[in-house]
Amino acid sequence: MKAVLRPYVAAFRARFLLLLQYRVAALAGFATQCWWGAIKIMVYAAFYETAAAAAPISLPNVVTYTWLGQAFLALLPWVADPEVAMLIRTGGVGYDRLRPLDTYSYWYARTLGWIIARALPRAILMLIAAGIVLPLVGLEAWAWRPPAGPEAAVLFVAAFALMIMLAVAVLMLANVVVAASLNERGVNAVLMPLVIVFSGSLVPLDFFPDTMRPFLHAQPLAGLVDIPFRIYFANLRGVAALEGLALQAGWTLVLIVLGRFAMTRMMRRLEMQGG
């Protein structure tokens, strides 16, 4: 088993270490996310000040939701892996086909390494800033709070893992479309707004008009933000939380199957074109 996984682990590791070197990029990402978080929270606060009773989630929870979202923003599948586009353009894909590996899994491992390496330093910094520094300086009203309880914490760990798996599965589909269309910008331009709205990154999904809820809660991207974060502060608990996890897992599987299928077809086409 270990021998089988080795190349994929290596692919993950190489990518992960490479990206960790971009110290400035990590700090920059952190700064960006602090700023966005602050703006969003100020906007929410202004609305809540006007009519708090209308809100589906309490202000402290929306604040935590916002910081969580900022901390894990880089885990969202909103741009296809730039390395894939590069590989296609330079013909490096050919090399990948020469390796005695399952290409889907290989790319999956690389992309996983990429997004985790991008997200990890920022998430840690964000946790320190919003979870520790803010309460220390007397701004606990605006801080990132700990999970609602032990049950929420355990469920969140599972939901978080699924969220990453799901994110990479979405990215893999995007990667394949990039590879097939040779156009990363177009793919990203379509992917980004979809992910931002339907994951709940823009606003928690329950802020949208009530009539849209059944659809919003069932679609795959809800598993990227809305479900795990609401599990975190126990807005989803018990059976509802388990349903959320099942939804994440189910969609992850569906997307992986779809991605594999699309990739096989795309590779066959590449082979036929000799490219």
Partner: peptide
Amino acid sequence: GVAGALSGLL
């Protein structure tokens, strides 16, 4: 290695 990458961040 990992340690090097992390210390390089600082």
